[in-house]
Design a binder for these strands. Sequence first.
DNA 1: CCCTGATTCGC
DNA 2: GCGAATCAGG
Length: 226
Amino acid sequence: MSWTDERIATLKKMWEGGATASQIADELGGVSRNAVIGKAHRLGLKSRPSPVKANEPKKVEKKAAAPAPAPRKPAPRPAATKAPEPAPAAAPARPPASAGTGAPAQPLPNPSSNLPKIVSVGPGGFLRQGPGDQQAPIPPAPPRRLVPAKPSPEIADKTSLLDLNDRVCRWPMGHPGEPDFHFCGGPVNPGFPYCVEHCGRAYQAQLPRGARRPPPPLPFGGPRVR
DNA sequence: CCCTGATTCGC
DNA sequence: GCGAATCAGG
């Protein structure tokens, strides 16, 4: 596997979104966790809550072991030694893009400036949040009118990873890395990251027991079987 | 043990 | 540039 632009974009997006290297590697496929980490560092992105590098302002007492003969690596390399590097300039906080409707900002799964609360990665590579992070299943102030769920003709072309903005539906279609992977790109339900149609998929009301209907099929054929 | 990311270094 | 091996912390 080679690092195509698509794969790099997915890597960046997921990495910055807080997905773990394992998740990214699993989603990309064909690469190991180490490959993802190595590539991420080569790309310049780095430094996310690392379990190993939690502390910095302390001279860590390395192993005062006896002079190791030279089993494999003669030079002792400190794994956690870094110069006082300034914190990476995080993306600016998202301003309330659509405050007009009165609907407060919802938990947008915007990966470029998201809290590291990602729990898992969805079938399309989007970042799925935990149940606790997804506040109200049915948010207030629904639109008065349902807009047609069809993608607008102005976005006839496929919405790529880089075409995402606050106004297009960011529901993934297909799988990242595949040639036809794109996003819905339809007009968003104001205040939400998805269009009306996909909002219905993303936020499902919890019906009382016994009154449940079978869940609708996944849009992209479900998780990739590997 | 499992997980995580960081780093090195041969390719 | 790539990534397996390795390290180190949780």
